[in-house]
């Protein structure tokens, strides 16, 4: 019993070059994403900005600007959303895209998932710094409540890791999961308070605030970074429990079904 526990702790604490390896995998993937384009890494800045600009223009017409600082409102929500979307889609593909390593070399197979989550973190951090720079330029106040922001980044990473692992497992038995997941993403995009004021959604469907693991993260992170408010601590706790449970299911299912996953590819 004690030995088993010790062994388990040992796998959590990085041995020799594990952290170095995860970071190298993440960095390399980030490079690959942009290496085939002429502008290269500049796209990591340009793409999200253009996307936000388009949404802003379109939605300003539709919603007659009933939310103050609507551009920042969208930006703060969409950078969480883009991370969620890219990380889960990347996680779903990771066995296929890292097959050349998984099949040939002995290492902890979870590392490719950690690195996939980290790859998208690089882009996310770029977005956050652009967001903060724009706040400074336009004269919106940044308060010390910003120090709470990493709480939501970690929550989001746990959630994405868990979902990636579960989706990879489902993928073993259901090849169409990537198409289905696209549909789920489309639905989630519209039921989260990314464009709408949160009251609009949750007054109508109060259960959605708790049924959907992303809503609390978006609301709380926005309060912290944009409005300088304290987060809703109950919601923070709830979201951590939810993300933790999803991650636990993910790790369990991955350990159980990983062999089948690589055989079927």
């Amino acid at each position: 019993m004690a030995q088993g526990l010790a062994a388990r702790i040992y796998t959590i604490i990085p041995e020799n070059n594990r952290l170095e390896r995860i970071w190298l995998l993440a960095k390399t993937d980030f490079k690959i994403q942009y290496s085939s384009s002429a502008l290269g890494v500049i796209w990591a800045f340009v793409y999200p900005l253009m996307r936000i600009l388009i949404y802003y223009v379109v939605f300003s017409f539709v919603f007659a600007k009933d939310i103050p600082n609507y551009g920042f409102y969208i930006f703060s929500g969409i950078m969480i959303w883009m991370y969620f979307q890219e990380a889960t889609k990347g996680g779903l593909k990771v066995i296929r895209s890292k097959r050349y390593l998984l099949e040939n070399i002995r290492f902890n197979k979870l590392d490719v998932y950690y690195s996939s989550i980290l790859t998208n973190l690089i882009g996310f951090l770029v977005n956050i710094s652009v967001f903060l720079a724009m706040m400074i330029i336009t004269g919106l106040p940044i308060t010390w409540k910003l120090i709470y922001y990493p709480i939501f980044i970690i929550n989001l990473m746990m959630l994405c890791l868990g979902i990636s692992l579960i989706l990879s497992t489902i993928n073993v038995y259901l090849k169409d999961i990537s198409q289905l997941w696209e549909l789920v993403l489309l639905l989630m995009f519209w039921i989260n308070p990314i464009f709408f004021a949160k009251q609009k959604i949750f007054n109508m469907f109060p259960a959605l605030l708790y049924a959907n693991p992303l809503a609390g993260i978006i609301i709380n992170s926005r309060d912290v970074i944009m409005y300088g408010k304290d987060p809703d601590w109950f919601l923070v706790g709830y979201n951590y429990v939810l993300a933790g449970s999803i991650l636990a299911i993910g790790v369990w299912s991955f350990n159980k079904f990983f062999h089948k996953a690589i055989e079927k590819i």
Binding site: N16, I32, Y100, R106
Partner: peptide
């Protein structure tokens, strides 16, 4: 046919494969 990523250079592939095998950078 397997073992390397075609999008990466020889240098990058060496570091990636070596690191995954447990060799320090």
């Amino acid at each position: 046919g397997l073992g390397f990523n075609g999008q990466l250079t020889a240098r990058e592939n060496i570091y990636l494969n070596g690191s995954v095998m447990g060799v320090k950078i």
